[in-house]
Design a protein around this nucleic acid. Structure first.
Lengths: 152, 152
DNA sequence: CCCTTGGACGCAATATAGTTGCATGGTAGT
DNA sequence: ACTACCATGCAACTATATTGCGTCCAAGGG
């Protein structure tokens, strides 16, 4: 089944971990559920805050899990316009890469549809002398909620 | 005179500051010369290291100058794939916005030509409900120098 | 059944990047 | 000269992320 940005995932996270050769632990599943269930990429702090509500977990554990999952291509690490990173499910065959919107006022990140900002990478792919791992497109600005508040 | 990404600038930095209503100080000029003279965007640390070689300057001063220049649209703040920001001359009428390449191995950032990665923003501009301030495109990967070293 | 081994996790310490508060000194206008 | 302003320096601080090290548990071999 297809996933769209903004839609909560229905992947089998245990299988995902297994395929990557990673041990299936409760904490890893919890992280994946939170990240996969979010409609936008989350920061390590947000993930930690969320998980800590249900059961104690060390923030270092979060960082290490995120690092591992990114390294194995399960999650994707995105830079925001701020100082932290946000994490989302990595793009794969049925989850298209897509640009993100970062609100510089509230710090919230949102997924944009892949079609909203079409990019032609063929020329770059053909001519770039190094290795290209990924292309990150981020739109910075102020979200409509913050605009409204700013008016008030 | 036109500037291309990667080409050192020939702008009159004092005039740039003046037009923005900012005092023309030696430190600000020094920062602008380093940033404008670089062929790729620099981090605050790099700028500080460079300037400190010729005359002592506090790192906070660098941060404050960068902040001010970005705020007045003279410089542009770019996120790298890492934890720091890089700074370059802001795009203006004769200096086109362009994507950047970030080498995840050596941390160097390079400017790509605007034409290398064409993006169509019209749809987004028309339909996005918030305010769009800028669109940042970053290509992450390994530069050819690092690839070569990796082979050796 | 015990022993070893390796990975996951926790905790404390450290690193890195950036920010804030406050003092000082110079400069322009009065 | 007096004042107000602003750039700068310095120290302390914040936020985010990473490292080192120890403990615990679970799997596998004797």
């Amino acid at each position: 089944m297809k996933r769209d940005p903004g839609m909560s995932s229905c992947r089998d996270y245990a299988a995902l971990l297994g395929e990557a050769g990673l041990a299936v632990t409760a904490n890893r599943l919890r992280v994946l559920e939170v990240v996969g269930g979010a409609t936008y990429p989350l920061s390590a702090v947000e993930i930690h805050r969320t998980l800590a509500r249900s059961a104690a977990i060390n923030r270092v554990t979060i960082y290490r899990i995120l690092e591992r999952l990114v390294h194995h291509g399960i999650l994707e690490r995105l830079s925001t316009g701020g100082r932290a990173f946000n994490y989302g499910l990595a793009a794969d065959s049925d989850y298209q890469p897509h640009p993100h919107f970062y609100c510089t006022r509230c710090g919230r990140m949102d997924c944009l549809s892949p079609a909203s900002l079409p990019v032609d990478t063929t020329w770059l792919q053909r001519t770039f002398p190094g290795r290209i791992d990924k292309i990150e497109i981020r739109v910075d600005g102020v979200c409509k909620d913050c605009l409204k508040k700013g008016d008030a």
